[in-house]
Amino acid sequence: MAKHTATIDPQSPCLTLINVYGVEPGTQADLAKALSEATENTIRHQPGFLSVSIHSSLDGKTVVNYAQWASKEHFEGFMRKPETQEQLKMFAGLATSVAPSLYTVSAVHAD
């Protein structure tokens, strides 16, 4: 299977999930680690998975999960799985707030 490198490209038909978790500074590393381990062990093996990038804010209060899926249908199939729902509950248990949204890329400006 070809490896996908995370890219932000308005020409790509992929779906982007940006999930912003509010956390207490003492749990930021735990949530980032849980997201990373779940991605490595199970999520990356799901049909339509392209990439996940996990970001931790410098103030310790936020973790952002930036995920790319081949299509909305692939993402919805992943979300319907009971094991996915269990993982999401575990992630939410480490957070004070969770704000997921789905996106397409409108434009990219870079040098």
Rank of each mutant, 00 (worst) to 15 (best):
T5F: 01
D59E: 06
A92D: 14
S53A: 11
R80P: 07
D9Y: 03
C14T: 10
H45R: 10
S101P: 05
H109C: 12
P100Q: 10
L35W: 12
E73F: 05
P13E: 03
D9L: 10
F91H: 09
H45L: 03
A67D: 12
S97C: 11
H74R: 10
S36A: 05
F78Q: 13
Q11C: 12
A107N: 00
T5Y: 05
A67V: 12
T7E: 07
L58K: 10
P10V: 00
V108P: 08
V98E: 13
P82Y: 04
G93R: 00
K3D: 13
C14D: 11
I18S: 02
F91W: 15
L15F: 05
I43R: 07
T27D: 09
T16P: 03
N19H: 00
S106D: 14
D9Q: 04
Y103A: 04
G77A: 11
G26M: 03
E83D: 13
S51V: 01
L50F: 07
E37Q: 05
N19F: 01
Q46E: 14
V64M: 12
S101N: 15
H55I: 14
A70I: 07
P25Q: 04
I43Y: 09
Y21G: 05
V64F: 08
H45T: 09
F91P: 10
E73A: 13
F78K: 11
A110E: 03
Q87V: 10
V105P: 04
N19M: 00
D30W: 08
P13L: 00
S57D: 00
G22W: 09
N65V: 01
V108M: 03
V105L: 01
I54M: 03
E86F: 11
P100I: 12
M90A: 15
E40H: 06
E73P: 08
S71A: 11
S53K: 04
F49T: 07
I18D: 05
A6E: 12
R44K: 14
K61G: 12
S57M: 01
T96N: 08
I18Q: 11
R80H: 07
C14S: 06
E76K: 10
K81S: 12
G60M: 11
T62G: 02
T39S: 13
K81G: 09
G26R: 02
K3M: 14
D111I: 13
S106F: 13
Q87M: 11
G77T: 11
Q28R: 06
N19L: 00
L35C: 14
H4D: 08
A32C: 08
A110C: 08
M90Y: 15
V64N: 09
Q28A: 09
G22L: 08
Y66E: 05
S57K: 00
H4F: 11
A110F: 04
D59N: 08
T16V: 07
A70N: 10
E83S: 13
F91K: 11
V108D: 01
A70F: 07
K33T: 13
H74P: 10
A70H: 09
T16R: 12
S12V: 08
F49G: 10
I8W: 03
A95C: 05
D111Y: 11
L17D: 14
S12H: 09
T104W: 05
E76F: 09
K3V: 15
S106E: 15
A99N: 15
M1W: 00
G26L: 04
G22S: 15
T5E: 12
E40A: 06
V64G: 08
K81W: 06
V20H: 04
P82R: 03
P13N: 04
S51E: 02
